[in-house]
Write a protein that binds this DNA or RNA. Structure first.
Length: 932
RNA sequence: GCGAGGGUAGCCAAGCCAGGCCAACGGCGCCAGACUUAAGAUCUGGUCUUCAGUAGUUCAAGGGUUCGAAUCCCUUCCCUCGCACCA
């Protein structure tokens, strides 16, 4: 019975029967279709959001399989990386939150959890869980091909790939400023931060001032303001240090010294010097040659830049106010701001203008940051350097900044100094995060213009679903630059030419879709035999197969299986991977494979919500996929996830909505059981058969276009509502004609990709042999489409609607309804109006017909009413009506039906034979009605 | 801030690219009726306002183009995703 279907035993039974049937091998007699999904990182249990990511591709795979394709749908597990190490560590430390997450939410058995101190145990456990739940959901995966990214064979594959990419000069060594936690001795990513994830790395220029035999560097983002420097600021409460930095003598704060060391500078501390000893001394602006006094300023932060600041009071509001405050106390009154930039809408001293405009009383005013930003932006976008700026006079600020920076760093001993834009950037370990320069880091050079150009050229050949994401891919290709591809810690494959590094997770998962094609066979070969030459032969067809560690026959097999499946047809992933993984894989395919083996298509998913909120394991806002499958049944979960939104849209899981999907499946089940004894023929059979052809066509079309939601709507709601009308129209006592057998067989197949368990069960129950999963997809038969019968049913439905809306309005005990059918001359008008392009001219056109003009105002009215009616009908229907519909015959045949439906006696009359004023309202396809 | 995508009736969600088939597909929820001892399930109808099957006002807000706009253009507000050492 229907209700049993969702019970796990029945599913289990079907699952047992499926067992190995989805294992897919090359079959030269069939076209192949290769779909794959971004593989999961198994560090926790799957929730319903993950579910959709794998169910949609499965639905597509099942659809095409029934279309006769040889379908490959593989799955593997991405185990590369560091997160799981952290998890293991936290479990070892008995971290409460982590134990709760894994013990309570993911329900890992106690004895297993105890072993989670080993990261490998964690990933293996969840990989098994993933497979089990994926199987429970009926995913038609070829599980022989499962692997993890840390098995030796896969590592050999990665080594092979990077041997090529490195050989092409696409992996480069370089310097790179990163956020870094000295306590962990590791770079930190966004997710490693406790605090300060919005902070950016700022790039300052150290501008040098001569101070005796020492130099004083001042950090600035606006080096061109060197022309307007009036003084330096030093903090009298700070003790500075004298140090040798890269062999030069500098005065800096000790914080700055530490930061410089992290940024690859050699710093030797010589002695200390209190801030007070600097104050009121004079330094020399080595660029302009002018003397600049050093003034006291408590606002100067030793933990920012070099701890010494250059002052440009004409253009920096902070400097302006600091100087103003001192001068108000009668000090340093001889210092005048030196303007160097002219900006529209500002006077000669913009800092003064803006400070006065906002009436800023002192430098602690909270508006300071805002107005500083305002002035800086105005100067950057519209400012020009004035005559005080020597060789740079007349340049835009933008240009001058660039030129001055280059000149300073290349010729005048300046350096670029990196600093976080906020001080409070805190690592998960609790330590402060700094900027560090990594200098022997390996990078994938996605910035290489030639490589970019190749990918740009390839992209138009890739089918993208939905098409709107194309532009995002374009932008990503442009935006990508060097990607650090190596890490010091984590699981994964070592960089073959520099073993102290491991490949970073995104970098080792770029072309594994190719590996799937042979993964089940290659695991049988010892890894040490898998030299780059072996892979060269398998994937590129290069080299002499008789002279390799692997025997020729095996190599040949692997090569031909790869060529059978590759290139892949569709890759599925959520949209957040566009800006990295999905674009990376295009780069790598381009670098490794020839033009005929490039990715053919990608389908990008929206995100998942749970009860309107973002799903998040750490916040506990998740619904585990397994729980959903146990509670509602796999088919219900599948149908809900497919039906709630198109793949590329965001979807929202709500338990109360899922329940009604379950009822829908049960309804289908019931309808099919009910039609078991259908036999003979009924007058309405032709209509149902005709409608079914449309449903088949549109379902097919939607699945082909990945519109799984729309496809389901056609396949389920469409067919169900047709069946409802069909049953309504059946003669008294009839349980339906034999046509139902065909219809139900088609319906089961249309639904099979979405609800495979139910379909499999019903397929057997309705007496079919074999698996519906491999049955032929229904094909629409044009010959079964009967337009005229569809039109007469439509006329009937519309008229019934009209009768019912009148009945509802009149509130009388009605006994009888009279249908007045429009006269011939109104049909002529309809035909004329239907043919008129510009509906504003209908009356004129109608009146050119002698016989109609004779009708006078009646004809005018009828024409206008017809225009309105036509606007409410589909074009196909309009042309069908224009060709002529015999309403009288239709209504006479359906009179008994109308009587039964409305519980009224029915009379059908030609409108012209009645004196009733309402009869005049009759139009073609819209009889006048009188209820009495 | 920058890049991309969105905002449609109680909720989810079609339509928008190719302006009139739109009071706006479909589903859910809710209301009423039928069936039933009853509940559930199922079926039928209703669900902006108004009304003998009509008409009026709607498609984030405000302007504009057009005979005509949810659909095209401009402005504003709000939401989602990405912005990089990472799953």
């Amino acid at each position: 019975m229907a209700k049993n279907l969702v019970m796990t035993e029945v599913e289990q039974e079907i699952r047992n029967k499926w067992n190995t049937v989805f294992q897919s091998n090359p079959d030269e007699s069939k076209d192949k279709l290769y779909v794959n999904v971004a593989f999961p990182y198994p560090s926790g249990a799957m929730h319903v959001g993950h579910g959709r990511t794998y169910i949609i591709p499965d639905v597509i795979a099942r659809f095409w399989r029934m279309q006769g394709k040889q379908v490959l749908f593989p799955m593997a597990f991405h185990v590369t990386g560091a997160p799981v190490l952290g998890i293991a560590k936290r479990i070892a430390k008995k971290d409460e939150k982590t134990l709760k997450l894994y013990g309570d939410l993911y329900r890992v058995p106690k004895e297993t959890l105890a072993n989670f101190t080993d990261p490998i145990v964690i990933v293996n456990y969840f990989a098994d869980e993933y497979e089990r739940v994926m199987k429970q959901l009926g995913l038609s995966i070829d599980w022989r091909r499962r692997f993890t990214t840390i098995i030796p064979q896969y590592s050999k594959f990665i080594e092979w790939q990077y041997t090529h990419i490195y050989g092409q000069g696409k992996v480069i060594k370089g310097e790179y400023p990163v956020r870094y936690c000295p306590a962990c001795d590791q770079p930190v990513g966004d997710h490693d931060l406790l605090e300060g994830d919005t902070a950016e790395i700022m790039h300052f220029v150290f501008v040098m001032y001569q101070f005796g035999e020492y130099q004083i560097p001042c950090a600035t983002l606006r080096p061109e303001t060197i022309f307007g420097v009036t003084n330096l600021w030093a903090n009298p409460e700070t003790t500075y240090i004298k140090a040798e930095v890269d062999g030069k003598k500098w005065i800096i704060s000790s914080d700055a010294a530490d930061k410089l060391r992290m940024q690859k500078h050699v710093v030797n501390e010589l002695s200390t010097i209190p801030g007070t000893e600097l104050i009121d001394k004079v330094a020399k602006n080595i660029y302009t040659g002018s003397d600049v006094p050093i003034l006291p300023a408590s606002f100067v932060d030793p933990d920012m830049g070099s701890g010494l600041v250059m002052s440009v009071p004409a253009h920096a509001p902070f400097d302006y106010i600091a100087l103003r405050d001192l001068q108000e106390k009668g000090r340093y009154t001889d210092i005048m701001p030196i303007p160097l930039v002219t900006v529209p809408n500002f006077g000669r001293i913009p800092a003064k203008d803006i400070v006065e405009k906002y009436k800023i009383p002192n430098q602690d005013d909270p508006r300071m940051d805002e107005l500083t930003q305002e002035l800086y932006s105005a100067e950057f976008s519209k400012g020009k350097l004035n005559e005080a700026c020597g060789p740079h006079a007349g340049k835009t600020v933008r240009q001058a900044r660039e030129d001055v920076t280059r000149e300073f760093t290349e010729e005048r001993g300046s350096i670029i100094f990196h600093e976080m834009s906020q001080k409070r950037v805190i690592c998960r370990c609790g330590g402060r995060v700094y900027v560090k320069i990594l200098d022997d880091q390996w990078f994938l050079n996605y910035g290489d213009p030639e490589w970019k150009a190749q990918v740009h050229e390839q992209l138009p050949k890739v089918e993208l679903v939905p098409p709107e994401v194309r532009i995002e891919f374009e932008r990503t290709i442009d935006w990508l630059k060097e990607w650090p591809c190596s890490r010091r810690v984590g699981l994964g494959t070592h960089v073959p030419w520099d073993k102290k590094w491991l490949f970073e997770p995104l970098s080792d998962s770029t072309i594994y879709m190719a590996y799937y094609t042979i993964s089940h066979r290659i695991t049988k070969i010892p890894a040490e035999k898998l030299t780059p030459a072996v892979f060269d032969y398998i994937f590129l067809g290069k080299g002499d197969p008789t002279a390799m560690p692997v025997d020729e026959a095996t190599l040949h097999d692997l090569r031909s299986e790869f060529l059978y499946w590759y290139p892949y047809d569709y890759r599925f992933s959520a949209k957040d991977l566009i800006s990295n993984h999905l674009t990376f894989q295009l780069f790598h395919h381009k670098a490794i494979f020839p033009d005929n083996l490039q990715p053919k298509g990608m389908v990008v998913f929206g995100m998942g919500l749970l009860n309107g909120m973002k799903m998040s394991s750490s916040k506990g806002n998740v619904f585990l996929l397994e729980d959903a499958a146990n509670e509602f049944g796999a088919d219900t979960v599948r149908m809900f996830l497919v039906g709630s939104a198109e793949p590329w849209q965001d979807f929202d899981w709500r338990n109360e909505l899922v329940l009604s999907v379950k009822k829908q499946i049960e309804r289908m089940w019931q309808l099919i059981l009910d039609s078991a004894d259908a036999a003979g023929t009924t007058p309405i059979d032709g209509w149902l058969e005709s409608r079914m052809q449309h449903r088949i066509m549109s379902t097919t079309k939607c699945f082909r276009a990945f519109q799984t939601r729309q496809a389901l709507q056609e396949a389920y709601n469409g067919v169900a509502s047709d069946l409802a009308w069909y049953r309504r129209r059946l003669p008294e006592g009839s349980n339906g004609g034999a046509v139902l057998k065909d219809v139900m067989s088609e319906w089961i197949r249309l639904m099979a990709p979405v609800i495979p368990y139910t379909a499999e069960e019903l397929w057997a129950e309705t007496g079919h042999e074999g698996f519906v999963s491999f049955a032929d997809w229904p094909v629409a038969d044009e010959a079964k489409i009967n337009k005229s019968v569809e039109i007469s049913e439509e006329l009937l439905q519309r008229t019934l609607d009209d009768i019912q809306s009148i009945l509802k309005l009149v509130q009388i005990e009605a006994k009888k309804v009279t249908l007045f059918i429009a006269p011939q001359w109104k049909r002529e008008i309809f035909t004329i109006v239907a043919g008129v392009e510009d509906k504003r001219n209908v009356v004129k056109t109608v009146m050119t017909h002698e016989s109609l003009r004779a009708k006078g105002k009646e004809a005018t009215d009828a024409s206008l009413q017809t225009v309105k009616l036509i606007h409410s009908l589909s074009p196909e229907l309009v042309s069908a009506i224009a060709e002529g519909v015999n309403e009288e015959v239709i209504f006479k045949a359906a009179a008994a039906f109308i009587e039964k439906e409305c519980k009224l006696t029915v009379e059908i009359l030609p409108a012209e034979e009645s004196a009733q004023p309402k009869a005049k309202a009759a139009l073609p396809f819209k009889p006048a009605l009188i209820v009495e």
